[in-house]
């Protein structure tokens, strides 16, 4: 099994510069994307039941190695870092191509796990992209793994207003939702082992990738403009002598706005 992870800034800690309206990213801690921890946990659970090996892989700058170590500390067996200047400015097309090339080099996994989406970009596009580059089936928004068989699995996939029970062959790419499990914490032993583990870094040369499909060259999209969102003006605080009056005033205002 291979788990794709991403190191992301902790968006709950991102602050806006009130004067410039830009992001202050200095001092924001980097974390393992929360959904990716669910993906690691899902792989570890299957390993406990069925055996096998769990390899975590990420594409990112050299410091992304910290995120890999955290997953090793949770219990993953191996970790690979894909890092090269040639990968810079990748959009989801080029990122999924690069990760797919890395996965190919690792070997032929039965299951590729991804988190549902990363909390910095929220696109949910890289998992399906990897599956497409590798020509594998995919199941996204997986909320439960019901059965893992020799040649396939049965999973629950969340959809608006319910879920579907899906049977899919292996190898397969599974993108997991947060509700699938509760990721374990790294143990002391795990952390020490993770610290000593050697993590290979693969770049353009090691992957044997097509340079036209990497980084900016491989990315069809361009960021044209980045700006601060329009904030709603300070709202109106409703006050009154008691709760009853406040509620009556609110209802009146909502009726004026024709929302109720």
């Amino acid at each position: 099994m291979i788990v794709c992870i991403k190191q992301v800034p902790d968006t709950t800690d991102v602050k806006i510069d009130p004067e410039k309206g830009t992001l202050i990213r200095e001092g924001v801690p980097s974390i393992v994307n929360p959904f990716d921890k669910n993906a690691v946990e899902a792989a570890l659970k299957i390993r406990e039941e069925k055996g096998g090996k769990v390899t975590v892989i990420t594409m990112g700058p050299p410091q992304a190695v910290d995120a890999l170590r955290e997953c090793l500390a949770m219990g993953a067996d191996d970790a690979i870092l894909l890092s090269d200047r040639a990968f810079a400015s990748s959009d989801t097309w080029a990122t999924s191509y690069t990760l797919a090339m890395g996965i190919k080099k690792v070997g032929n996994p039965d299951i590729i796990f991804c988190g549902k989406q990363a909390i910095d970009g929220d696109t949910a596009q890289v998992g399906p992209g990897i599956a497409e580059h590798l020509g594998l089936p995919q199941v996204t928004y997986v909320q439960k793994i019901k059965e893992v068989k020799e040649d396939g699995m049965i999973v629950e996939r969340s959809i608006e207003g319910g879920y579907e029970v899906v049977s899919v062959g292996m190898p397969v790419m599974i993108a997991v939702d947060k509700s699938i499990n509760e990721p374990r914490f790294p143990t002391m032993m795990g952390t020490m082992k993770a610290h000593k583990k050697e993590i290979p870094t693969w770049g353009l040369a090691e992957l044997g990738a097509d340079e036209d499909k990497l980084g900016m060259n491989g990315s069809p999209t361009r960021v044209k403009r980045i700006f601060a969102p329009e904030r709603k003006g300070q709202g109106e605080m409703i006050q009154g002598d008691d709760e009853s009056e406040v509620c009556a005033l609110l209802i009146e205002k909502l009726r004026d706005k024709k929302v109720v």
Binding site: T11, L23, D120, P220, T221, K224, R225, I226, A228, P229
Partner: peptide, 12 residues
């Protein structure tokens, strides 16, 4: 993007 902290206009 970034949890709604910034807006980005993307072209292709």
């Amino acid at each position: 993007a970034f949890g709604g902290n910034i807006m980005a206009t993307i072209i292709c």
